[in-house]
Design a protein around this nucleic acid. Structure first.
Lengths: 219, 219, 219, 219
DNA sequence: AATGAATGAGAATTCATTCAT
DNA sequence: TATGAATGAATTCTCATTCAT
C-alpha cells in the first residue's frame, strides 16, 4: 500500500509515476523491471520512491491493482449489459470481449496482467495472489459453480479447473496477439471459438455416466 | 554444447553439476538462475564452469535438452504402445500421461520445461527454440495437421493454435499440481477430461457451417 | 558525457576522481586501465562511479576531452601570438612548442593523448575519433590544405598523410622524452629541426617535375 | 627463451604452435593476446605451452624474434644488392622496399612489429627492447653515424633521432596501408617520397651555421 | 613429456535500498 | 518532505598459471 505521502502528491506527479511504473512492469517481469529506470524516466529522485512506497513490491502491487481494477470494471460493465441471469458462456464471451477491448485501448494495463501470469518466483506470486485472489479467481469460480448448479454445464466440471483453463487460454491468445501473430480481431474471434468448443464439450450429455468416458473426476 | 572437458569429468562430479544446475533452472527462470550459486553449491571454482560450458546459455540449453530428451523419450514410448496410426486425441492422452509420469518421477526435469514456457525474454526463448523447435513444436503441429487431413478434427482448427492451447493447458495443470493444489492423479485425470472436451468440441460437426469458421458466435 | 551527479559532487571529490582517472588512463591504454583501481584509490564504492558516468568509455572520453581541450587551448594561444596568416610551418612550430609546454606542465594530460595514438582497438578509437575528430584531425588537415593552396608547400603533399606524419613524429618525440631519453628542451628543439627539414623538403621546387609526383626516386 | 622441450617437438607441431602464436600476436597487442586462444586453436593442452615456454612473455619474445630475424634477413639481402658502400638514403630506400615486400608476402610477421611499436606497458617494452635492441636500433644508428662521417648528411643530425623518425614514419605508413587506406604500392612510393624529402632536407647545406636556423642541436 | 582440470583474482556493470542533508 | 549521493553485494565472464596424474 502506498504511503500517505504518495497521495499527497500533486495529481500530475502522481500520474506520471503511475504511468512510468506501468510502462516498466508492462515491459518486464518483476525482477527484470528496474526501479532505477522508473525514477530516472519519471524525473524524480531515487530516494523519493521510497517516500511513496515501502519497496519495489509495494509499488508493484499498487500498479497491478490499478490494472486489475480497470479490467474488472470493464468486465462488470460488459456483464451488466447481458441482462438478468446470463449463462456462463455468455459471461465468458462478454469477459473475453471486454478483456480484448481493454488490450486494444490500453495494452500496457493488459500486459501487466499477462506478465503476472508468467511470473514464477513465489516471492512475487504470493503477495500478489494474497492481495487479489478474491477479486479475480473467486469471482470466476463463482460463475462456474453457478453454472453447474443451473445445469448449464456438466457436474463433473470443477470450477477452479475451468477457471484456470479459461485464464490460461485467454492469456495465451492475448500474448500470441501481442507478439504480432494475430490481429486483435482474430484473437478475439479465435477465443470465442474456443468458448464455443468448451460450450459444446462441457454441456451435460445424454450419455450414461454423466461425464467423459476416459477421464474427468468420477468419484 | 558442453565442452569436451565436461564429458571427461569423473562421472560423479559431472552428475553433481548437472543435478545442481537442474535444481537452479528448475527453481528459477533463466535470468534469476545464478551461475554463482551453482558453482558455490557444487564446491567448484568460479572459473571452472567455463571450462565445461561456453557460457550460461550453453549450460541452460544443455540442461534443458536433457529434460526435453527425457520427456520426448517418455512420450514416444507411450505412443509406441498405442498401436498403428493412433488418433490425435489418443496421442494427446498418451502424451499427457507420459508427461505426468515424468513429473512424478522427476519433478525437477518437468519444472525446467514448465519454466521455459513462462520465459518472456526473446534472448532466452530464441536460442532454445532454435535448438529444440523441431523436437517439440514441429512434432505437435504435425499431429494436428495429420488429424485435419484424416478428418479426425474439423478443418477450421489451426495446428499452431491447437498446439499452443494444448501446451499451455497442460503446463498450467502441471504447475497447478506442482504447487500442491492437486494430486498428480487428479491433474492427469483432469487434463484427460479436457482432451475429452476438445475431442468432442473439435470434431467435424454435422451442422451447417461446419464450425466457427470465423470463430464468430452462433446464437 | 558525465551524468549530472558528477557535477554536483563537491569540488574536491570531483577533482580527486578526475585526477585518479587521469593517472590511470595516462599509465595504461584503455583496456588495461581499470575502473576498479580508480574507485579503490579514490576510496569510493564500486557502484558510485556509475552514478557519475555511463560506463568506462564515458569516463574515458571525458578525461580524454579534458586533455584535448587543454592542449587545444594551448595551441590556439600559441597560434594567436603568430600574427595574421602565419605559414604552416610556423604553425607547426608553434603547435610543437605548445605541446611540449603542456607536457612539461602536465605530463599526465599529455600522456593521455600519446596513449590514444597507440590505441589499436577500433572499439576504442571509433568513439573517441567520432567525438574529437573535428577538433584534432580536421583542424590539421585544414592547415595543410591551405598551405597547398597558398603555394607554401608542393601540391603533391596529401593533407592526411602530412598530418599523420607530423602527429606520429611529434608523438614519438614526446614519448621518447617522457621516457627520459631526452630533456624537454632537447626534444622540442629536435622536433623543430624536423620541421625545418620538412619545410625545406616539402616546398615547391624549381626542378622539372615539381616533386615526387608518384613518390618515385629521382636519381 | 623456449625450453629445450620445445625444440624436441616434432617439426610439424612446433610449426603449428609458432604459426598460431604469430596469428594471435599479429592480431592483438600483448595484453589482449590470449594464451588460451593460442592453445585452443593449436589443439594442444593448456599446460603444454608451459612445458615449452616459461610464460606468456617468453613465448612473445620468441615469436617477436622470429619476425625480427626474418625482417632483418630481408633487409640485409636488399642491402647486399646495393653494391659496396651504399649511401644511407639508398639503404633506407632498400630497407623500405624490403619491409614492404615482407608486409606483402607475410603480413602477419609485419603486424607483430607494428604492434610492438604501439605497445605501451613498460613491462612489455622492456624485455623485448633488452633482447633486440642491438639487432634493430643499434644497426640503424650505425647507418646514420656513418652517413655523418662520410658527410652524406649534415653533422647536426643525431642518429637515434633519425632512426626514431624513420621507424615511426615507416610504421605509420604501413599501418595506414594495413588499414586499407592505401595500396601497398602507394604506401611504398609514399615512403620513398618521404626519404626524398629527408635526403633533400638533411643533406649538408651551403649556408653558414651548419644546420637549420631555428632548431637542431647546436651545442 | 604431456595432459587438461582447477584455480581464483580480476574485469565491467546493475540493482534495490539507505541516509545525511 | 524531497533529495540524490553512497553503498556493496551480486551478476557473468576471462585470464595466466599451477599441478596432480
Amino acid at each position: 500500500m502506498p504511503k500517505p505521502t504518495f497521495f499527497n502528491l500533486p495529481e500530475e506527479k502522481r500520474q506520471r509515476i503511475v504511468e512510468l511504473a506501468t510502462d516498466e512492469f508492462a515491459a518486464n517481469l518483476y525482477h527484470a523491471a528496474s526501479l532505477s529506470r522508473i525514477v530516472e524516466r519519471a524525473g524524480i529522485a531515487k530516494g523519493s520512491i521510497y517516500q511513496y512506497f515501502e519497496d519495489k513490491m509495494d509499488l508493484y502491487i499498487y500498479i497491478f491493482g490499478l490494472a486489475a481494477e480497470t479490467k474488472l470494471a470493464a468486465i462488470q460493465q460488459a456483464m451488466a449489459a447481458l441482462g438478468p441471469s446470463p449463462g456462463v458462456f455468455d459471461i465468458l464471451r462478454a469477459a473475453i470481449r471486454a478483456g480484448f477491448e481493454l488490450a486494444r485501448s490500453n495494452p500496457k494495463l493488459a500486459a501487466i496482467g499477462m506478465n503476472f501470469l508468467r511470473e514464477r518466483d513465489p516471492a512475487v506470486r504470493g503477495p500478489v495472489l494474497a492481495a487479489f485472489m478474491p477479486m479475480g479467481e473467486a469471482m470466476m469460480d463463482q460463475w462456474f459453480r453457478t453454472a453447474v448448479e443451473t445445469g448449464e454445464i456438466a457436474p463433473w466440471v470443477e470450477p477452479a479447473v475451468a477457471r484456470l483453463s479459461y485464464t490460461t487460454l485467454a492469456n495465451t491468445a492475448m500474448e500470441h496477439m501481442a507478439e504480432g501473430h494475430m490481429t486483435l480481431d482474430e484473437a478475439a474471434r479465435l477465443l470465442e471459438g474456443v468458448v464455443d468448443v468448451l460450450e459444446y464439450g462441457l454441456r451435460p450429455r445424454a450419455e450414461a455416466g454423466g461425464g467423459p468416458e476416459k477421464g474427468g473426476r468420477r468419484q
